[in-house]
């Protein structure tokens, strides 16, 4: 048996591909660290993306439930008819936002350096 066997080459290749994929994934765009929640245009809460928690925000149609997790956030439930902001799923990158327009609630992710100066909806 030699020093490097067939499986070893496979493990090394898989490891290399894994590292490259990880690099592309982790270093593409800045990952956000704060969730900014607005209702009717006003900031109601700013929450660091550090631990699991759930936030309920009231709008004209009902209650929008926002879920915060380490490194990401999403709109878990919303009374709007088309559920666009819910379907967006988890947001991780700085500058990403989910807008629940009918209920006038929005969730925006921010990093250390804001991706945009301002966003007009």
């Amino acid at each position: 048996m030699g020093m490097l066997r067939a499986g070893d080459v496979g493990v090394l290749l898989a490891g290399g591909v894994g590292v490259v994929a990880l690099t592309l994934w982790a270093w593409s765009g800045e990952h956000g660290d704060t969730a900014v929640i607005r209702a009717a245009g006003q900031i109601v809460q700013t929450i660091p993306l550090t631990r699991d928690q759930s936030v309920a925000v009231d709008g004209p149609l009902g209650t929008t439930r926002i879920e915060i997790a380490p490194g990401r956030a999403r709109v878990a439930a919303d009374p709007s008819p088309r559920q666009l902001c819910v379907k967006q799923g988890w947001l991780t990158l700085s500058g990403q936002a989910a807008l629940c327009l009918p209920n006038q609630v929005s969730l925006e992710i921010r990093g250390r350096t804001p991706a945009y100066d301002t966003l007009g909806y």
Binding site: V19, T23, W27, H31, L49, P70, G71
Partner: peptide, 15 residues
């Protein structure tokens, strides 16, 4: 550490 900081370092550690 916050998860975001770990994520940035992850590729270096993996490499």
């Amino acid at each position: 550490l916050p998860a975001a900081a770990i994520l940035t370092l992850l590729p270096l550690f993996a490499a």
